[in-house]
Lab assay of single mutants.
Amino acid sequence: DRIFMTRTEALEFLLKAHQTAVDKIGHPSHKQTPADHAAIEALDRLLLDVRARRVDQFQINASAAQIIVTD
């Protein structure tokens, strides 16, 4: 599946995904793992790359739809 978004929409989408990941590892019942921190770092890099126009398409994980940034 493909989803087309403007750059602004894609950045909002990534910010929400980032916040969800941060909230998940901050929850008291969740045991933090290196994979959790790696996922947040990957989202940080992706946010910067989309914002800087170095990336025009991405996929958060293998089961997610491919996001295509349109400007």
Rank of each mutant, 00 (worst) to 15 (best):
66 Q>H: 12
62 A>E: 13
63 S>F: 11
5 M>I: 03
29 S>E: 13
65 A>H: 08
23 D>L: 04
67 I>D: 00
49 D>M: 07
52 A>E: 15
55 V>I: 13
2 R>V: 15
50 V>L: 05
39 A>M: 15
6 T>Q: 03
30 H>F: 09
38 A>N: 07
53 R>G: 15
57 Q>N: 11
8 T>H: 14
29 S>T: 12
39 A>R: 09
6 T>K: 04
66 Q>W: 15
12 E>K: 08
16 K>V: 09
40 I>V: 13
65 A>Q: 10
8 T>Q: 14
46 L>F: 02
59 Q>V: 07
30 H>N: 10
4 F>I: 09
15 L>P: 00
14 L>P: 00
61 N>S: 13
40 I>P: 02
20 T>E: 15
15 L>V: 13
51 R>E: 13
56 D>R: 09
30 H>M: 07
60 I>K: 01
18 H>I: 15
41 E>S: 10
3 I>C: 05
15 L>K: 15
51 R>K: 13
27 H>Q: 13
62 A>P: 13
21 A>L: 15
64 A>K: 08
15 L>T: 14
27 H>C: 06
71 D>E: 08
65 A>D: 06
21 A>E: 09
68 I>Q: 05
50 V>Q: 00
53 R>P: 01
21 A>I: 14
12 E>M: 06
66 Q>S: 09
32 Q>R: 12
51 R>W: 05
15 L>F: 09
44 D>L: 13
63 S>P: 06
38 A>I: 11
13 F>T: 04
36 D>K: 04
46 L>E: 00
54 R>K: 12
19 Q>D: 05
53 R>D: 06
11 L>K: 01
62 A>C: 06
64 A>N: 09
58 F>D: 00
56 D>Q: 10
41 E>I: 12
48 L>Q: 15
12 E>Q: 09
40 I>R: 03
33 T>D: 11
20 T>N: 13
4 F>R: 06
13 F>I: 09
40 I>K: 04
58 F>K: 00
50 V>W: 01
59 Q>E: 05
17 A>G: 02
47 L>W: 07
30 H>V: 08
58 F>E: 00
68 I>G: 01
12 E>W: 05
25 I>D: 04
19 Q>G: 05
60 I>V: 07
66 Q>I: 15
61 N>V: 07
21 A>G: 02
27 H>Y: 09
6 T>M: 02
14 L>S: 00
13 F>M: 10
60 I>F: 04
42 A>K: 13
68 I>A: 03
19 Q>K: 13
63 S>V: 10
62 A>H: 12
48 L>Y: 04
29 S>G: 13
32 Q>G: 13
50 V>A: 01
61 N>R: 06
65 A>K: 10
17 A>D: 01
9 E>S: 04
67 I>F: 04
28 P>Y: 01
35 A>E: 14
10 A>G: 02
70 T>E: 10
26 G>A: 12
29 S>L: 12
32 Q>D: 12
23 D>R: 12
7 R>C: 04
47 L>K: 02
54 R>D: 04
69 V>K: 01
7 R>G: 02
16 K>Q: 11
38 A>S: 09
21 A>C: 05
62 A>V: 09
15 L>I: 12
70 T>L: 14
30 H>Y: 12
12 E>D: 14
44 D>W: 15
40 I>S: 02
45 R>C: 05
55 V>S: 03
37 H>A: 12
4 F>A: 05
47 L>T: 04
64 A>H: 08
43 L>K: 00
29 S>F: 06
60 I>R: 01
31 K>M: 12
33 T>I: 05
62 A>D: 15
49 D>H: 04
17 A>E: 13
8 T>P: 08
32 Q>V: 14
64 A>R: 07
22 V>N: 05
49 D>A: 08
28 P>C: 06
25 I>E: 05
37 H>D: 09
30 H>C: 05
17 A>K: 04
4 F>H: 10
11 L>A: 03
40 I>H: 05
20 T>I: 14
38 A>K: 09
29 S>N: 14
50 V>C: 02
1 D>M: 00
21 A>Y: 11
52 A>H: 14
28 P>K: 09
59 Q>C: 04
36 D>L: 15
46 L>H: 01
61 N>W: 08
33 T>Y: 07
63 S>E: 13
6 T>F: 02
1 D>N: 01
14 L>V: 03
61 N>F: 09
13 F>D: 01
29 S>Y: 04
63 S>N: 13
7 R>A: 04
12 E>I: 08
7 R>T: 08
66 Q>P: 06
47 L>P: 00
29 S>W: 03
65 A>F: 07
54 R>P: 01
20 T>Q: 15
11 L>S: 02
17 A>Y: 09
52 A>I: 06
10 A>W: 01
54 R>N: 06
17 A>V: 13
20 T>D: 14
24 K>V: 09
63 S>C: 08
57 Q>Y: 11
63 S>G: 11
8 T>I: 13
32 Q>H: 14
52 A>W: 08
68 I>P: 01
58 F>M: 01
6 T>D: 04
29 S>P: 08
56 D>S: 14
46 L>K: 00
23 D>T: 10
4 F>C: 10
4 F>G: 02
3 I>T: 04
6 T>N: 06
51 R>G: 11
44 D>M: 15
39 A>W: 14
41 E>T: 09
32 Q>N: 13
1 D>G: 02
21 A>K: 04
31 K>R: 11
29 S>M: 09
29 S>A: 11
71 D>P: 07
35 A>K: 09
5 M>K: 02
24 K>Y: 06
30 H>G: 10
62 A>T: 11
23 D>C: 06
26 G>L: 15
23 D>P: 02
49 D>K: 03
56 D>Y: 11
64 A>Y: 11
28 P>Q: 09
51 R>H: 11
37 H>I: 14
30 H>I: 08
10 A>D: 00
10 A>R: 00
68 I>H: 07
31 K>I: 13
38 A>V: 09
65 A>R: 06
45 R>Q: 14
26 G>F: 14
31 K>F: 10
39 A>L: 15
64 A>G: 15
20 T>R: 13
14 L>D: 00
18 H>Y: 15
24 K>S: 09
63 S>D: 12
63 S>L: 12
42 A>I: 14
1 D>Y: 01
47 L>Q: 03
42 A>T: 13
68 I>T: 06
60 I>G: 01
2 R>P: 13
60 I>M: 08
7 R>D: 01
26 G>P: 04
40 I>C: 04
45 R>F: 04
4 F>D: 02
6 T>E: 03
13 F>E: 04
61 N>K: 07
38 A>E: 10
37 H>P: 04
30 H>E: 09
63 S>A: 11
53 R>I: 03
18 H>F: 15
60 I>L: 11
61 N>H: 14
28 P>L: 08
52 A>G: 07
52 A>Q: 12
15 L>R: 14
40 I>F: 04
26 G>V: 10
70 T>G: 04
19 Q>F: 05
25 I>L: 11
11 L>M: 09
63 S>I: 11
7 R>Q: 06
48 L>V: 14
42 A>N: 09
15 L>H: 13
8 T>M: 13
56 D>P: 03
45 R>G: 05
20 T>G: 08
39 A>N: 11
16 K>A: 13
46 L>W: 02
70 T>F: 09
58 F>R: 00
46 L>C: 02
43 L>R: 00
28 P>I: 10
48 L>E: 15
60 I>H: 04
43 L>V: 03
48 L>D: 15
19 Q>V: 05
37 H>M: 13
24 K>A: 12
53 R>C: 08
63 S>H: 12
11 L>D: 02
57 Q>L: 07
2 R>W: 08
14 L>H: 00
65 A>I: 15
